[in-house]
Nucleic acid binder design. Structure first.
Lengths: 247, 247
DNA sequence: CGACTCCTTGATCGAACTCAACGTCTGTGG
DNA sequence: CCACAGACGTTGAGTTCGATCAAGGAGTCG
């Protein structure tokens, strides 16, 4: 996906590229014809972001469509008085910034939680070559469609109590890690309790209490940001089984 | 937009078609060349839905992309034990069903709140003519992007108290009516208090109480589903101004 | 008119928020 | 290496907002 990867594309494809949402312009998924590779050279640009650095801020013009290769990011919205709300934690394989497609400027901010690498395509290039990379248009449509479907599923867990929402949050992270071929039972959260709370609409103390409560049942063990899942099936029940009741 | 409208397209374009999200295949926005009109004849099909009838149900295959011409719809998700949660109230000018693009089947259900007419394009036709109607692909990308951006804005109001959320709900409806050229100060809600509550994550009694509370300030008058907005600026403060506090 | 659904209002209860204090980890500089 | 600062996490106590339960009112349709 990086420019320097072009010559390597036939040799070794990083695992994360297989699920990358920029796949249709990316060398990793379809070997390019000469012209196509030229297009891609003009289009794809790699970028590295240090932990704590912003990738973009709300209000800035929409310049790049990103796909995260490694790392973890948080995106947040702010209201008039500066209160912020986490809207998501994009990680490797996710695209970033697409919500700005409509208004042409970002209405959320995006910051790296840990050191992160991301591939990007300039919006101008994307627009210019819209027909050539209509496969990518389609890919982005699918991505956005899936995001919306996920949001709908999310709504269902939203009126559940705190322990369930936190359990569901952990399950989703574990599932995502599993899909990426990582160990789903060892979670290293890159974000603070306050971030989780902002995302789940809970106070940070409530997140802590919920984690303690879940830990007491034996599903997980917590050591600050390290979470070990000992009984993922029970955790799944705690998250989604309406018959399960805590303590 | 309806087949029978084709001959009329040059004479009178319904106001709602100007903002229709199927615009790029619709006769109302761009007069067709002979071939294009033939394509459109194959593609666009009108449909009428009676109040209470389902347009599609969760689990059904994804067959049509809809654009609502007149009427009002609610979409809802269900969890394993049958509890439902309203995910949105699409109205005239909105597209419907796109969240299914990714999984190829619907994961929410959609039902008309009042008698509704909708234009639709079959997914098969859309896929078959994907290159010809790449303008529509782009249009749908913008639509989904905007939906996600709206969701992000929605998150900010979500941790506010009940009165604010209800006030914000009314403001959004008023703004949408204004955008469609209707009177923004006379709202006729097509959905029940329970539906609003499910959407806002509130009990239906809380919705009633919030409306009563807002009415007491003089911003609105409520008569069951008829809401008159008397002071929209105050209502806007009640929804979004962090300095505003209720009685 | 009666049956039904929806809306409204009141009273009580509980889950989560807020405030506060303390514990724990990390990084920095002497 | 240790001391310290600062950020983050945990736990407890009191409060509050909204859910729940309950009852009655109002509109609608046969």
């Amino acid at each position: 996906m990086f420019l320097e990867d072009i010559s390597l594309a036939t040799k070794r494809i990083p695992a994360v590229c297989g699920s990358c949402e920029l796949g249709c312009v990316c060398l990793c998924t379809s070997l390019p014809a000469a012209e196509r590779s030229k297009l891609i050279e003009q289009v794809v640009r790699p970028t590295r972001i240090r932990a704590g650095d912003h990738i973009y801020r709300a209000g800035e013009p929409f310049q790049w469509i990103y796909a995260i290769k490694t790392g973890h990011v948080k995106t947040y919205a702010q209201n008039g008085s500066g209160e912020e709300r986490i809207v998501g934690f994009p990680m490797a394989g996710d695209t970033l910034g697409l919500e700005a497609l409509h208004e042409r400027y970002h209405n959320v901010s995006s910051v790296a939680l840990i050191d992160t690498t991301a591939c990007r395509i300039s919006v101008r290039a994307f627009e210019r070559f819209a027909t050539e990379i209509s496969g990518m248009q389609r890919q982005l449509l699918l991505t956005l469609s899936r995001d919306i479907a996920r949001h709908h599923q999310w709504l269902i867990t939203e009126n559940q109590r705190a322990e369930r929402r936190v359990a569901a949050f952990l399950i989703r992270i574990a599932d995502k890690q599993k899909a990426r071929g990582e160990d789903p039972e060892k979670i290293l959260l890159p974000m603070s309790r306050a971030d989780i709370g902002s995302y789940l609409n809970l106070a940070h103390e409530t997140v802590t209490r919920a984690l303690s409560c879940i830990a007491k049942t034996g599903s997980i063990r917590t050591k600050r940001r390290k979470i070990d899942i000992d009984d993922i099936e029970q955790l799944r029940e705690q998250a989604f089984d309406p018959d399960y009741h805590f303590g």
